[in-house]
Design a protein around this nucleic acid. Structure first.
Lengths: 347, 347
DNA sequence: CAGCAGTCTGTAAACGTTTACGGCCGGATG
DNA sequence: CATCCGGCCGTAAACGTTTACAGACTGCTG
């Protein structure tokens, strides 16, 4: 396996020093004649600079990592889809880490920053930012953007920006809508309470009910996992316990899919008998039948914001940490509107 | 910004040479006493090796890239989902390149191999492997796995393995099934003919009809793009031209989604009036209503195979190029089976 | 006690760049 | 003609590792 040409090879062929070669290739001022000879030699040899050597010398890798729980989750796909072109545009390559939501893996990625194989990191920790996460971020001395919530008491040295959404308001939007279309017995299918989204949504559901003057009823709440199967089981349990439920608020779209499966199986009309709202507004929401009303937490926008913050720090150097909050919105579709009825109309 | 400790720092603190430090850290035989001192110093300093310097010296980056048209496409997501854990297991990091299917971007990635920022590449070129692709692969001198079809006349020097599927057989499976449930006027909604999948599926459709003894009718074929909107337009056009069509074969699941939209809008029963078959068997297929019968081209399996081939080459050195062919299969769902009817039954 | 084998360690080179520094040469100036 | 200045260029060091090689030391043998 012949090794490729290096600047030394070019220097020999062009009869100049490696310093001149480097200068020419980097466009530094050089005599016309030298430029031509170097360019010629480089072309003939088909020279391509070695990015590893360059990284070592320049102390930058032009790589950025994105770490999330599961690349199979449409929410993260939406983020990657926004992040990738922004990074490419700015000359960075993208590394992907799927952590399965394991804190251990997340920490591994954060600690990996010290190996200096990336210039920065965007991370979305599923179970929140622990003491250990923070330590690792501080020790990394590389810019990090956390998508999700961050403790208030971040230490000074941490080069960390934050992008978050307001799922509280998101749940509120959904319940207001359900209330507006006349629903009063609104069930809630949540994910695990020891995840950040799970805990936040649980609290938000309670609050929203209160704001609407509806009673909180334990029987209307079911906790499972963030998957379709689990959503189906939860829906089945809830429906048999409280047959009169007239709406289901689901903590994400996958759970809502499971709920739709069960409602169809039981022959209950959606939204006639039971209205359903999902959360995350993934691509799936427009595919189901009926199509799924869903709270958009702005995945794409969060991805864009995170990439923007990171690039800003990399390009413009240190500054005060920033927080970007993305406002949720409600996308109303068929699972809460009877055909021919306007979205806001009563039932 | 304090720079982190290097082996030099450790060497000073431990009172030994950097060579000894390196030996200890790499587990080479060393006197007990020295080991202890080095380990102690490394711990106290919180040393982490610099992966860039290591890469430069070792001539390997422990990174692998995956290049595909669009990370938003569920087919590629399925592949990434399989590839990532295999690479992680083998100690490689994963880089993602979304090329938008632009030949220029694909070539950019291939040429990038010469910059040596990755040890290998998995690529899925949307519009086929051109002369230029091949040149770049040969020049790369790094192992490449192509997912998709590869010309027969690859030059000797190319370190390239190949994973492909047999979409011909896939289309055949679908048409056999449609024929078996009594459909005779089977329309075909295809993607662009200048893409590899588009061309292959067009030919396969013709062949399959012939094998079934059905006439080929131009009016039954519509060419658009591989997206949902485009699938809808195509379906609309086809249905108005040939109202009596009793089945729609779609070149991918997204097109099939569009077709389902239109059929619902026109009040035609699926599968009663028109049966629908998609292709790729993505997650979407189990979400639609009715759920979508779809030809699985084994995305996950192709991803696994590609990662396996690449790792094999990286770990065991040069060998003859290999080709893995993944057999398609048909996943039968609601869009071709009347409730209560067994899948194979007549209409 | 000389010689020798065997361990362990340190020096230095190498991986392929970028860049500080000083030298050389030309022309312009006094 | 001596001096100075500016523009180019080459030498060498640096980035942080790994590793070939040779030297130092130990303890043993004859």
């Amino acid at each position: 396996m012949t090794e490729g040409p290096t600047i030394t090879t070019i220097a020999q062929r062009a009869g100049v020093s490696i310093a001149s070669v480097s200068r020419v290739l980097n466009g530094l001022p050089t005599r016309e004649d030298t430029v031509r000879r170097v360019m010629r030699a480089a072309d003939e040899l088909g020279y391509v600079p070695n990015s590893v050597a360059r990284s070592l010398r320049n102390r930058r890798t032009d790589q950025i990592a994105f770490a999330m729980a599961d690349i199979g989750n449409p929410v993260y796909v939406a983020m990657v889809r926004e992040i990738q072109p922004l990074l490419k545009e700015a000359g960075y390559r993208l590394l992907i880490h799927s952590t399965d939501g394991e804190a251990e893996d997340e920490l591994g990625v954060l600690r990996g920053l010290r190996e200096r194989y990336v210039d920065g990191l965007i991370i979305s920790p599923l179970r929140g930012v622990t003491e250990e996460h923070i330590e690792a971020i501080v020790a990394a001395r590389a810019p990090v953007v956390v998508i999700g919530s961050l403790p208030d008491d971040m230490p000074q040295g941490a080069l960390v920006d934050n992008v978050r959404t307001d799922s509280r308001t998101g749940v509120r939007l959904a319940l207001d809508h359900l209330h507006a279309i006349g629903r009063r017995r609104i069930g809630f299918l949540n994910g695990p309470l020891d995840t950040v989204p799970g805990a936040a949504r649980a609290a938000a559901y309670r609050e929203a009910l209160e704001a609407l003057g509806l009673p909180y009823d334990e029987d209307l709440v079911e906790v499972g996992d963030f998957y379709r199967d689990s959503g189906a089981s939860a829906a089945r349990a809830l429906l048999s316990r409280v047959p009169g439920v007239d709406a289901l608020m689901c903590a994400n779209d996958l759970i809502a899919l499971g709920a739709l499966d069960v409602l169809r199986e039981q022959g209950r009309d959606v939204p006639g008998d039971v209205a359903v709202v999902g959360m995350d507004d993934t691509d799936l929401a427009s595919v189901t039948w009926p199509t799924l009303t869903s709270v958009s937490l702005g995945s794409a926008e969060r991805g864009r914001a995170a990439a923007g913050l990171l690039l800003d720090r990399l390009q413009n150097g240190p500054r005060e940490p920033r927080v970007v909050v993305v406002r949720p919105s409600l996308t109303i579709r068929g699972s809460t509107t009877l055909p021919g009825t306007s979205p806001g109309g009563a039932r």
